[in-house]
Simulated scan of single mutants.
Amino acid sequence: MEKVLEINHLTKKFGRMTAVDNLSFSVEKGNVYGLLGPNGSGKSTTLGMILNVVNPTDGHWRWFEKEHSIDSLKKVGAIIERPNFYPYLSAEKNLENVALIKGASKSKIDEKLSIVGLLDRKKDKFSTFSLGMKQRLAIAAAMLNDPDVLILDEPTNGLDPQGIIKIREIILDIAAKGTTIILASHLLDEVEKVCSHVVILEKGKTLYSGRVDEMTASFGYFELSSADNSVLFQALNSITAFDKIAENGSQIKAILKEDLSAESLNRILFEKGIVLTHLVKRKESLENQFLQITQNQN
């Protein structure tokens, strides 16, 4: 897979504070990457460095296999601050100004407004827009020059649930058309629903880097109960597919170390004379995996 961004041992210090600490990861074309971490974890500083607005203390990066090329950044669209448009101008006029600055064609304006669902509001002043609409206009502006990569820093921050859903839909739509997206967020739910890959940061360090589905690719676990849970507990301990078995109130939680279907488990237990009153197979959520990773660092 073609790499659009490679980051190697990137470090940024502000006096005695290390904001980004020896960060390394790469971004492959056509995916949605989430930089996940709490405020102060180094997400925005990392984006600032790869966009040439923050000077690194150490390390390096390259876009499209070219070292620190200004031309490469012409292929990158970014929103790293709150939308900054003229309040008294319409959405269309504001995008005309952006097109002029970027050297992009004004003929793209209607297309980009349509992508973000604002084509019918293009004549309305920016000051009349809701926060979510302002953010969507910013995405349209970042897309005017048809970038290969779109960078978004906390794109749903401060939005109401409806606004969050709309932004997520737009991100997925843009990604589906082949644009690589790098998205910084402190929201687990956002990363799980939007991103194909995730880089988890804490205090500037990488705790995990890889595919979201591989992070949650444990074999899952069963929640079970029967008329006699003590007998069920003993029976589950005799099945080699399980890694750990524990009582959880009126139920038993059995964590898998290899694949086993609910149907197969039900049959095995029935052959042992155990009739289940409850059987549910679940998968570890990104939240559980995230908590395990971060707790292991403390």
Rank of each mutant, 00 (worst) to 15 (best):
I164E: 06
I50R: 03
I170P: 00
I293G: 00
G132C: 11
I171M: 03
I139C: 06
A235L: 04
T45L: 02
S250I: 12
G77C: 01
N31C: 04
W63N: 02
K203I: 08
G210P: 05
N55Y: 15
D228V: 14
E284W: 05
G77N: 00
I109T: 01
K12T: 05
Q234A: 11
V4D: 02
N52T: 13
E67T: 12
V280A: 13
L47Y: 01
V275A: 09
S24T: 13
D146L: 02
G103C: 07
N266Y: 10
V199Q: 03
K102T: 06
A78M: 05
D71P: 01
I109A: 02
L137F: 10
I255R: 09
F242W: 04
E2W: 01
W61T: 03
K108Y: 10
S24D: 01
T18H: 03
T11Q: 04
K257W: 00
L137A: 13
F64D: 12
E28S: 12
A104G: 00
E6Q: 12
A141F: 13
R211C: 06
H278C: 11
S69E: 13
K112S: 03
N237P: 03
I245Y: 05
L265T: 09
N52S: 15
Y88P: 05
E154T: 12
N298A: 10
K29C: 10
K106T: 14
Q289N: 07
N55M: 12
S264R: 07
L224W: 09
T294M: 00
N157L: 15
I268E: 08
V98T: 11
V116S: 01
N84T: 13
P38L: 12
L236G: 11
F64A: 09
V98F: 12
I70G: 04
N266T: 15
T206S: 11
A141I: 11
K75V: 01
D160Y: 15
T128Y: 06
A138H: 01
F64I: 13
P87S: 10
E92R: 05
P83T: 09
F14M: 10
R82P: 03
R121V: 07
A19D: 06
T45D: 00
K29G: 10
L100C: 12
T180Y: 01
M49L: 02
S218A: 11
N298Q: 11
F233Y: 15
N296Q: 11
K166H: 14
K253L: 12
G37P: 08
N288C: 03
F85A: 09
L187V: 13
G249E: 09
V198E: 02
T57D: 00
